[in-house]
Design a protein around this nucleic acid. Structure first.
Length: 278
DNA sequence: CAACAGGCTGAAA
DNA sequence: TTTCAGCCTGTT
């Protein structure tokens, strides 16, 4: 019933990867992680060097968890001081997953001014409203497609606890539905141009754009700056001022500092630092 | 009750 | 170009 994949010498921690806050529809039930992604309902368990799983094939696991990426090479490249070194040692094995672009866009529009539990609830509500039933588990619905969401009114989407984000979701789902090649277009752009493009969607500002580019488009130089990262960067490197509201210039300077400091995989450094927040 | 949570939009300076 | 109020929901 369950499939089995041997990691061999591939560094990977399922727990760190799924609990760090990059995804919102994975839950740990007993020892298994259960999640909805790419239109599938998947269960995965890590037992040391083995992954036991159902709901997908081995190729999907490698694809979703980006197991082909040489994690040690990436972490060596961003490991430029004692702070990030400590974070890496504490979270070793954390990988960025490969989110489906629309899932990611929708998720991070919801993520503004919200916490993880709240975000998950909004997504579950919208999935139950117009996602498709997947698997046999009760309440497991796929993410709602842009097509299905674009046919709902603001009130219906607002009923999913999305609050003031409802009109953003309406407008952006319609825009995406009307332009099926949107994600391919963005994928083929470099980071700066891709960022400009994705910020054209309603509800997508600098931080949300950077998250989407990092988690769905593998633009690893992207360095999302949220309130947590700003505090951390201020504490470690003395930049920014967490006491004041963040201006766009401050966002740009922190993000730019991070790219200079951590290099082309700055986004990986961000996720390791973020995972150690509090 | 106020403050805050993985920000963004639109208007005004 | 930059600043700033206001914002849905939910928890502490």
């Amino acid at each position: 019933m369950k499939n089995r994949f041997e990691l061999c010498d591939i560094p990977f921690s399922l727990d760190e990867t799924l609990s760090c806050g990059q995804v919102f529809r994975w839950k740990k039930v007993n020892d298994f992680w259960e999640g909805v992604c790419h239109g599938r309902f998947i269960k995965v368990l890590q037992n040391k060097k083995f992954l036991e799983y159902s709901g997908c094939d081995e190729e999907f696991l490698k694809y979703y968890f980006q197991l082909d990426l040489d994690l040690d090479l990436v972490l060596d490249s961003v490991c430029t001081d004692e702070h990030i070194e400590k974070a890496i040692n504490e979270r070793y094995g954390l990988r960025l997953v490969r989110q489906e672009p629309w899932e990611c866009l929708l998720s991070y529009i919801c993520a503004q001014n919200a916490n993880i539990g709240f975000i998950s609830r909004m997504l579950e509500n919208m999935s139950a409203m117009c996602g498709e039933k997947i698997g046999t588990d009760e309440g497991s619905y796929s993410y709602p497609s842009a097509e299905s969401l674009s046919q709902k009114c603001v009130t219906d989407i607002g009923c999913c606890s999305t609050g003031y984000r409802a009109p953003y979701i309406c407008e952006t789902s319609f825009a995406v539905m009307s332009d099926p090649k949107w994600s391919k277009r963005i994928q083929n752009l470099g980071y700066p141009d891709a960022r400009k493009e994705i910020m054209k969607y309603k509800g997508v500002g600098p931080k949300v754009a950077d998250c989407i580019l990092l988690f769905a488009f593998q633009k690893f130089e992207s360095f999302p700056v949220d309130v947590w990262i700003r505090r951390i960067m201020n504490g470690f490197y003395g930049i920014g001022n967490p006491e004041k509201p963040m201006s766009s210039s401050e966002y740009a300077s922190i993000s730019s500092f991070a790219r200079d400091h951590f290099g082309e995989y700055a986004g990986y450094a961000q996720e390791y630092l973020f995972a150690g927040r509090k």
